Computed example of a mutant assay.
Amino acid sequence: MADLPPLPPLREVIAKHGLSASKALGQNFLFDEQLLGRIAAIPGDLDDKSVLEIGPGPGGLTRALLRAGARVTAIEMDERCLPALSELEAAFPGQLKVIHGDAMKIDHGELIGGPFAVVANLPYNVGTALFTNWLGGEAWPPQWSSLTLMFQQEVAKRIVSQPGGSAYGRLAVLAQWRSTAKLAMKVHRSAFTPPPKVMSAIVHVTPKDMPDGVSAKVLEQITAAAFGQRRKMLRQSLKSVRGALDALAELGIDETRRAETLQVDEFVQLARKLS
C-alpha cells in the first residue's frame, strides 16, 4: 500500500467545520482513532475490497477503513458533514465515493455493483430497520460478504441471543437462520461525543447456506406473529397464520409453548412446512 496521507485529528476536523452530533439523526461521534482502527479490522483484510458505510458523519470510521485499503462507498444524509468527507475524498483519490442521501431509500447492491462488506456505526434511529433489510429477501447468499455494525448494546444482545431469555426474539431468528452472528466488541459510552445514555456493541454477521425449501417471507410472517404476542402460547399467537397450528401438530411442537422457547431450527422447520 502507498504511504498514507497525514490527516488532522478528528477533533480539529469537527471544530473546523462547526459540526455537532445531531440528536434527530441519531448521531454520536467517535474520536478514538485506535478504537476506530480496531473496528475496521473486525471484517478481516479489506485491502482493495468494496465497503459500504452508512452515516459516516465527519469520517472517523471512514478514515480507518481507507487506511486499511478499502474502497469505500459512504452514504451520508447530513449535508453538514459533506465538506469534511470531501476532504477525505481528496486525501484518498479514487478510494472514497460519498453519496448524499437516505440509506433507507437506496439500493445498496445496485449502487456498488458487486460483492461488498458493510461496516458502519449505524445511526441509532435507523439501525434496526437497515439490519432487517440486509437480512431479508428470498435471494441468498446476499451481495454483502459480512455486516460489521455498531448498535446499542441492548439491540446487539437481541441479535446474538439464544432461546429462553427475554432478549431472544424476532431479530435473533432473522439473524441466525441463514447467517452467523457474534458479538465482536463492546464500546463504552464514554468513547463517544456526546456520550449516549446507553452502552454500545459491535455485531459481526456472515452469511451461511440457506436451509432448503424455506421462504424468507414466511419465516418473517411466523416470527412477527409469534413474538408480537410473546407472552401468549403458540396456539394463540400463531392462530392468525394460516396452517400454522396444523404444522405445529405435524412437527410435534407443543402448542402450549411460548415463542421464546423455540430454537431457531424449529422456526425454520415451521416455515418449511408453510412455505
Rank of each mutant, 00 (worst) to 15 (best):
M104S: 14
F29A: 02
A24C: 02
L35K: 07
A175Q: 04
A244V: 10
S146P: 10
C81T: 10
G60I: 14
L82R: 08
A68Q: 07
K97C: 13
E110A: 09
H108D: 01
R170I: 09
L174N: 00
R230G: 13
G101C: 06
G169E: 03
A201Y: 13
K16N: 10
W140H: 15
E260A: 02
E79V: 14
N121I: 07
A201L: 08
A167H: 12
V126Q: 07
G164D: 04
P196H: 04
P194C: 04
Q143W: 13
K208Y: 04
L61W: 09
M185P: 11
A70K: 05
G169Y: 05
R67P: 06
E250V: 12
Q236H: 15
A24I: 10
L10F: 11
R71F: 09
N125C: 06
V218Y: 00
I99W: 12
P6Y: 09
L7V: 07
R80N: 07
V264Q: 00
P194T: 02
H17C: 01
D254S: 14
V173E: 00
R80E: 01
A184R: 02
L88E: 01
F192Y: 10
Q229L: 11
K208P: 07
L122K: 07
P83Q: 03
P142R: 02
L149E: 03
R189W: 09
K97S: 15
Q152G: 14
A167F: 08
A129Q: 11
V205R: 00
Q27N: 10
I222R: 01
T256H: 15
V126W: 08
E87C: 05
Y124T: 00
K182A: 05
T73W: 12
L10R: 09
A247R: 06
K239S: 14
P6K: 09
E33A: 13
V218W: 00
A70R: 03
L30R: 07
K97L: 14
R242K: 12
S86G: 02
L171D: 00
R38E: 14
V98T: 14
P195F: 09
A117R: 15
Q269K: 13
E255L: 10
L122T: 08
L85W: 02
Q236R: 15
P211V: 09
W134I: 10
D102I: 15
G94C: 08
E87P: 08
K208W: 03
Q229C: 09
V98N: 05
G137P: 08
M210E: 07
L147K: 02
G113H: 12
E76F: 13
E79P: 12
V241H: 00
V264N: 00
A156F: 12
Q221L: 13
E53M: 05
K157I: 11
R230T: 14
K186G: 13
M1A: 08
L61R: 03
G101L: 07
E250N: 09
A191F: 10
A249K: 14
V155M: 11
P142I: 03
S145N: 04
S200R: 10
A167P: 04
L171A: 03
A68L: 03
R63D: 02
P9R: 06
K105S: 15
